[in-house]
Structure formats: C-alpha cells, structure tokens
C-alpha cells in the first residue's frame, strides 16, 4: 500500500510526536542528570538507593505485583464465563466495563473511601449483622483494593478479547479427537490467551507501579509509593532534578517490565486492549 503522497497526511502527527512525545522525554532526562546549576551529575539517579526511596520503590513493586495477580485471578474465570454467555454484541461486554470510567475516577475512589472508612458503610453493615469491625482504610491493603478496582477492566478486556477470538471449531476438533475439558483448557484455551494475559499484566502492572493518587486517597498519606515520592519532589520540595532522576528510574522499571513481557510473548503480536 506504499503511496508517497499519502504519507504526508501523517505530517501533523509526526510533528506532534517530535514536539510532545520525544522532546519532553529528552527534557526530563536532561533534568535527571543535571543539578540545580545545570552541571552533569548522577546523584539524582543514585538517590533511589536512599533508604526512604528504596523502601517506597520496593513497596510499589510489591503492591503492584499483588494487585496484578489479584486482577489476573479475578479476570481469567470472568472472561471464561463472559465468553460462555454467547452475547450477540461483543461491544455490550466492553460497554459494561468501560461505563464506570465515565464516572469520575477521583469520585469512584472517594466512594471507596466512604465505604471502607472506620465509620463507613461497610462497618455500619458489619455492625448491623453482628460482625466484627474492620479497619481497612489507610493500610496497604486498602491501596491494593483500590488498584484492583480501578485497573480490573484493563485485565478483563484483553483476556476476553483473546478468548472470544478462539473459534468454536478448534475446540470442537479437540473434543472430537478425544480431549477432555481440562485438556481443552490446557492445550487450546490457555496457550491461545497468553498474549491477552500478557497485555493485561502490562496494562495493570505499569499504572499500579506508578500510581500516586490511589495511595494518597486510600492510604491516607501513610502508604508512601514511589509515585508519591516523585510527586512530592515536584509539588512540595520543588526539587525538580531529584524528581526527574527518580522518574528516570521509574521509566527504566516500566521499560524493563515491558521487555520482560514481550520476551515471553511468543506470538509476537500484542492483543489490542480495546
């Protein structure tokens, strides 16, 4: 489909890429490797090894990992159930999972704050039922809860997409050739949904690793993630060089996790999220 003239329709976008995608990354890298006076230094990047930063990074990695695994554990059976429903319009399923996003993200997380707080709805219900009170809010568990809630659709949709693409004829053929249910699952369904699972993992792990709002709202300032540290460097300490240096470290982790996932994706093509 090579067409010399038509390529120029991408012109505005190419300018956009250079100006607003590539250039900002160069700028943040520049800030990250210089100090306030503008001379070269690696201190901002090495700063990640300071105990408080290291602790935040490790906690972020841990919570992101737990959230991703929980999302996966919830989504895979869900995708199988949805796929078994034989809904006529696949777009309807997508619609149901995208719809909550039209309600402001901040408000949805605030609603969880109302539900989970010590005198909140959950404890009121628990008390009425004679169950012991739980204090979830302002703990790492509440942050994981918020992450799973917010990122679950990003895991469900790619898995569901890859699953709904598996033709019935393949499954039928396997059955005809004597596979039982578990063999069909292990030899057909699972291998064919790996790429969906991998893109789901990326879509959940990266935002969970870098989030700072959920930990602020549901962690009550007690759960300090690497995103919170970076935000504070910019908004409170106004140490932009340090913030940029830590951002570079964060970017390296994002790239590393994507490279790791890509190397495991044998099909070579990612499943589109939507």
């Amino acid at each position: 489909m090579y067409n010399f003239k038509r390529q120029f329709l991408s012109g505005p976008y190419i300018i956009w890429i250079v100006g607003f995608i590539v250039l900002p990354i160069l700028v943040i890298c520049y800030y990250g490797i210089t100090d306030a006076s503008g001379s070269f230094t690696l201190e901002n990047i090495i700063a990640i090894s300071e105990p408080i930063h290291m602790k935040a990074l490790l906690l972020s990695l841990k919570l992101a990992l737990v959230s991703t695994l929980l999302c996966l554990a919830l989504s895979y059976p869900l995708a199988m159930i949805l796929n078994g429903l034989h809904v006529k319009h696949q777009s309807f399923i997508v619609f149901i999972f995208v719809l909550p996003m039209w309600m402001n993200f901040m408000l949805r997380i605030l609603a969880w704050q109302l539900i989970l707080s010590n005198n909140g709805i959950l404890n009121t219900v628990f008390q009425a039922l004679g169950l012991p009170r739980v204090s979830l809010l302002n703990t790492p568990a509440a942050v994981v809860f918020g992450m799973v809630y917010d990122y679950l659709p990003f895991m469900i949709l790619p898995i569901y997409n890859s699953m709904s693409r598996i033709g019935n004829d393949i499954v039928d053929a396997a059955r005809d050739l004597g596979c039982n249910k578990f063999q069909v699952f292990a030899k057909i369904i699972l291998p064919l949904t790996v790429s969906g699972v991998l893109s789901g993992i990326i879509m959940v792990f990266v935002p969970a690793l870098t989030s700072f709002v959920i930990s602020n709202l549901l962690g009550g300032g007690k759960v300090l993630l690497i995103g919170n540290v970076i935000e504070q460097e910019f908004m409170q300490n106004t140490n932009w060089n340090m913030g940029s240096g830590l951002s570079i470290v964060l970017m390296i982790f994002v790239i590393a996790s994507m490279a790791f996932m890509n190397s495991h994706n044998k099909e070579g093509e990612g499943t589109a999220v939507w």
Binding site: F20, I28, S247, M251
Partner: peptide, 14 residues
C-alpha cells in the same frame, strides 16, 4: 505505555 506521572511531569518540564 509510559507511566502517567512521567508523561505529565516531562510535559510540564517542557
């Protein structure tokens, strides 16, 4: 794919 916080900060710096 990049982290939102990094995208936001890098654009702000620019």
């Amino acid at each position: 794919l990049n982290a939102d916080i990094v995208t936001g900060i890098s654009m702000m710096l620019l």
